[in-house]
Amino acid sequence: MTDAKKNKGSVTIVVFSGELDKAIAAYVIATAAASMGMGVNMFFTFWGMNVIKKRGGLIKGRHWMQKMLNVMNYGHAKKLALSRMNMLGIGPAMLKTMMSQKRVPTLHEFIQTAASLGVKMYACEMSMSVMGLKKEDFIDECAGVIGAVSYLADAKESNVNLFI
């Protein structure tokens, strides 16, 4: 983090949830903070990793449990459920329509905007090893793979810390 970013403060966000509504909430805050010149670090862990996963590659992992989990937990920025009123996928479709009517960016657009504003997105190393995921399974906007200590080192210096 540069000194310039420190002067304006910084935000750290843990994205634990892999649902569309929660992911959008995280990115609204991340992009708004970045627009204010704040440094933003997002740490994607557990179900939240789906938000920054690449499309495709249904079967991942080494042993059968990892493979089964990854098939059942398949998702990426354009394919996420809602935390409420999912209604077998009707909910997300309706919400996407309603959001585009109000010209709220899609999650995919939010991710690109965030990256262009310098928001750093990291995947959690421990969750990745549990689920059998590799760095290549994540989108290019993912800046790297870090552990809890690296996250906390950033969080300790930040002014705002969120767990979503």
Binding site: V28, T31, A32, A34, S35, M36, G37, K102, R103, V104, P105, T113, L117
Partner: peptide, 14 residues
């Protein structure tokens, strides 16, 4: 015009 929160702030910053 037409853009919703937080995009006006983002566009302004840029």
């Amino acid at each position: 015009r037409g853009l919703a929160c937080p995009m006006p702030s983002v566009k302004t910053a840029l």
